[in-house]
Structures are given as structure tokens and as C-alpha cells.
Simulated assay, not measured.
Amino acid sequence: MTIRVLIADDQAAVRSALRLVLDTTPGLRVVAEAADGAEAIQQARSRRPDVAVVDIRMPRLDGIAVIRTLTAPDAAHVPAVIALTTFDLDEYLFEALRVGATGFLLKDNNPQLLVDAVRAAARGQGLIDPQVTGRLVRRFARLSPQPAGSDLARLTAREREVLLQVARGLSNGEIARALWIEEGTVKTHVARVLAKLGLRTRVHAVIYAHEHGLTLSVDP
């Protein structure tokens, strides 16, 4: 099955670079491009991509508005959305994840990470670069008020351990090796954690963990 992708970025050079990576990868195909937020919404509605790669900073409508619109509960077609950002400049990423982004990428990331992120998004999974997970989420978590309550008490001890490993950016395989359990068991625990906490993706689980002050072993 070919994964259909929409690229939304106001810089033509960036769109060309992303298209080159995606269109030359088996199983992926760019079906539309957009140079601003309004066009991104229009293209998403007409082309119905599986995944939309959306720059946070765009004219007419910014990426936050685009993501909120594309992932709205009443939308006729809801693609998975990957937020694209420049880490040192963009302080809207945390809100992008809140309003429905499945994952995020930094613009200077390895092209393979883009491919992995698109494939993960198409499977309904989020992707966070383990090298920046800790400092990035901590930075944006400070912009958000602390939650009034917590559903952490609903988690079993093992589910809490798995949540901590997810918050470090580890894959299911890596978590399985770290906790000496089967990868299929990890997948089950992750699904239960998301369900109990009312979260949609692993990305939101990372944010939740940081928001609720869990002690994480994450490199600064």
C-alpha cells in the first residue's frame, strides 16, 4: 500500500527537498504541496493524503491552525500530521502536539527520520527523535500550566515503567530489551497506557510524562 503524503511549507526549497526524499522511497508518494496554511487545508481536503507534513510557521494560516483544522473531530478526512519546525526558533511546537500532531521533525534532521516518521504516522504512531526528546519537551512543557489532576494512579507498576521508557523516546524493541519482556507485551502495555490516560499517540504520552513531573532518565 502506498502512503500518500501532503507537504506544506512556505519555502520552495524545503518542499523540493522533502519531495525528493519521499518520492524516491518505495511505498511513499507526495500527492500534493502547499505554500501556506490555507492552501494546505484545501489540498488536504481535495487530495485526502494519509500523512501531512506541516511547517509550523506559514503565511495566511500558521501550522497550529492547520493541524487543528485537519484533525478536528468533525473533519471528513483526518490525515496523520507531522509538525515540521526549527527547534531554536519555534516555540509553538508544544501546542501543535496538543491540537493533534502525531509527531514532529526538526528541519535539519536526517532524511531517514522523515521516512520513518511518515511510515510511523501512517500506522497511527508518533515519532520523536530520541536525541532531542528530553530538552525539547521540557522546554515546551514549561509553557503549559501544570494539570490539575492525574490519571497516573490508574497505571500498574509495569505500565508506569513502560511510560517512562516511552518518554525517553525508546522504541518497543528497545523497551522490551530494557525491561526484559517480549516486544508484543510492550505493545500491549503501551496501548493500555494510552487508553487509561486518554492519550492518542506516543508523542502525547511523552508530553504527559513531562507535564506530570515524572523522573526521567533523559540526556539534557
Rank of each mutant, 00 (worst) to 15 (best):
R139L: 05
A167Y: 11
D151T: 09
L197V: 12
R119C: 11
A191I: 05
K107C: 02
V162M: 10
S171D: 02
A167L: 03
G198M: 08
T102H: 01
L97I: 15
N109F: 07
Q125F: 10
S171F: 06
R202A: 12
E161G: 01
L199Y: 07
P111S: 05
A120S: 14
R200G: 12
R98P: 07
R123Q: 14
I175E: 04
R168K: 07
A176E: 06
E174V: 01
L143Y: 03
N109I: 15
L179V: 02
L199C: 04
A121M: 08
L114R: 00
Q146C: 08
L194R: 10
R168Q: 15
A167E: 11
W180R: 14
L179D: 05
A209S: 10
A157C: 03
A148D: 02
D108C: 05
V166W: 04
A205K: 09
L136F: 06
G169D: 13
T156C: 05
L127G: 02
K187Y: 00
A120H: 03
A141S: 05
R119V: 12
L136M: 15
P130V: 04
A101K: 09
K187G: 09
Y208T: 10
G100T: 04
F140K: 00
R192A: 14
K187W: 00
V193H: 10
V118E: 06
V203A: 15
A101V: 03
V186C: 02
P130I: 11
A157I: 01
R119K: 14
V99G: 13
T133Q: 11
R142G: 04
G126Y: 10
A205P: 13
Y208Q: 00
R142Y: 01
T133G: 14
L127N: 07
V203L: 06
N110T: 02
A176D: 02
G173L: 04
L194W: 13
E174S: 07
G169R: 11
V115M: 11
Q146G: 03
R135P: 10
R138S: 15
G100I: 09
L93G: 06
A96M: 06
N172W: 01
V132A: 12
P111H: 12
R139Y: 01
N110E: 10
R138H: 04
G173R: 09
G198E: 12
G173D: 05
D116G: 06
L194F: 11
R177N: 13
R142I: 00
R123K: 15
V206M: 13
A195W: 04
T201G: 01
R202M: 13
Y92Q: 14
A167I: 09
G198F: 05
Q165G: 03
R135W: 14
I128G: 09
V137E: 01
Y92F: 05
P145K: 11
E95R: 13
A191R: 12
A153W: 03
W180C: 08
L197W: 08
S150T: 13
V166A: 11
R154V: 03
P145W: 08
V166C: 14
R200M: 02
I207Q: 14
Q131P: 00
G173H: 04
P111C: 06
L199R: 04
P145F: 04
T188N: 10
F140G: 13
L97M: 14
L164D: 06
T102W: 05
H204M: 11
R138K: 15
N109D: 15
A191Y: 05
A117P: 12
A209P: 10
L114W: 00
